[in-house]
Structures are given as structure tokens and as C-alpha cells.
């Protein structure tokens, strides 16, 4: 199991943020320590493997450092960092065109090597876990990859990062109503993809 660090996390107070806004690297390091797990796990679900996720996470933190001057304490720092992370994730997906809505309609859709590798990586990294759970995780991750980045974002924030609807609304700059209706669409799409996958798999 991954150990829980929550108790050791350095607390980020207003003074730390202000120092970071002045370019203080020590303060930025504290912010990095505090948020790296959240940012990485969010970034990971927008990518296909550890390397890409690391690359994306680094870009996000560099962006945080550059833009933190613009943080005006109107939301929590966490919300603001989630916003930067999700936007970076959506951008990356669009840039690399990782998802294709048509691919799932192709009868010969191939479970790409990336996903198989991901599956393997899970097994390497989590040898203690049982294989069925890893297979489930790989196919869920694979299904997520075939949702549009916006729908993916909402599922990540709600069920992987466990944010409340109100915070998701602030992250995505929309109303809670929009969050819920988009969540509905995401669930319908995810179900479709998963069912298609299990048909292809058999």
C-alpha cells in the first residue's frame, strides 16, 4: 500500500503563499511537497503512463510557480492548483489527440500497447495487489482515456480526487448544475465505452 503522508504534509498558510509569490524557492518547495500527490494523480489520469504523467506534473508545477503571483486568495490554493492541473491535462490531451471518439466504433479497435504497458506497470509497482483488481484498473483507466478531456476531468475530480460538487464548480468555473449534468453525460459515456470494451474483449 502507498503510505499516507497527510500528517507529515507541511501546512500552507497565507505567509507561505505570499513568500512564493515573491519568488521564494523554499516556500515553493513546501507548496510542491503539499500538492505533488494531488497534481500527479490528476495528471496521471490524463496520460498513458508514468513518464508522461511526470512530464505533465513538472509542467504544471513550473506553471504554478510562474502564475502564483496572479493568485488572489479568492479561492483556496488547492482549488486554484486543481484548476491549473485540469487545464494542463485537457490541453495535453487536445495537443496529442490521445482520444478519438470514433475509435470505439471501430470493430478492430486495438487495446493499445500503452494500456497494456500501464497494466504491466501496475503489476510491477503493486505486486502485492491481486491481479483482477489490476486488470479492472487498467480497463477503467483505458476507458477514461476515450472520454473527451472535459468529461474525463469531471470524473477525475469527483471520484479520484474526491472533491465536493461546489469545489468542482469553482475549479471548472461553472455552476453546480453544470457539474452534475456533465457528470451525468460522463457516466453515460463511460458506461458505453466499458460495455463496448467488454464486448471486444470477448
Amino acid at each position: 500500500m502507498v503510505e499516507e503522508h497527510s500528517e507529515e504534509l507541511p501546512q500552507i498558510d497565507e505567509a507561505t503563499i505570499r513568500k512564493c509569490q515573491e519568488g521564494d524557492k523554499g516556500a515553493f518547495h513546501m507548496i510542491y511537497q503539499h500538492f505533488k500527490t494531488k497534481v500527479f494523480s490528476t495528471a496521471f489520469r490524463f496520460t498513458n503512463n508514468y513518464d508522461e504523467a511526470m512530464d505533465l506534473t513538472q509542467d504544471i508545477f513550473i506553471n504554478i510557480f510562474k502564475k502564483i503571483k496572479m493568485f488572489e486568495f479568492r479561492s483556496s490554493l488547492s482549488t486554484w492548483i486543481y484548476r491549473l492541473s485540469v487545464n494542463a491535462g485537457i490541453d495535453r490531451v487536445r495537443k496529442y489527440k490521445r482520444y478519438t471518439l470514433t475509435s470505439m466504433d471501430h470493430p478492430d479497435f486495438q487495446a493499445t500497447n500503452d494500456f497494456k504497458e500501464l497494466h504491466k506497470e501496475h503489476q510491477v509497482k503493486r505486486a502485492d495487489e491481486n491481479v483482477i483488481q489490476d486488470e479492472n484498473a487498467a480497463s477503467t483507466h483505458e476507458a477514461l482515456q476515450r472520454l473527451s478531456p472535459k468529461l474525463r476531468a469531471i470524473l477525475i475530480l469527483r471520484y479520484i480526487e474526491d472533491l465536493p460538487y461546489s469545489e468542482i464548480a469553482t475549479v471548472l468555473k461553472c455552476s453546480e448544475g453544470t457539474v452534475k449534468s456533465r457528470l451525468n453525460r460522463a457516466h453515460i459515456k463511460l458506461k458505453e465505452v466499458l460495455e463496448k470494451d467488454s464486448e471486444v474483449g470477448r
Binding site: 500527479f40 501496475h122 495487489e129 483488481q133
Partner: peptide, 8 residues
């Protein structure tokens, strides 16, 4: 059920 990931 998605596993929590080790953060590098």
C-alpha cells in the same frame, strides 16, 4: 477502485 499511485 483505481489504485492510489506512488508519486515520484
Amino acid at each position: 477502485e483505481l489504485p492510489k499511485l506512488e508519486t515520484p
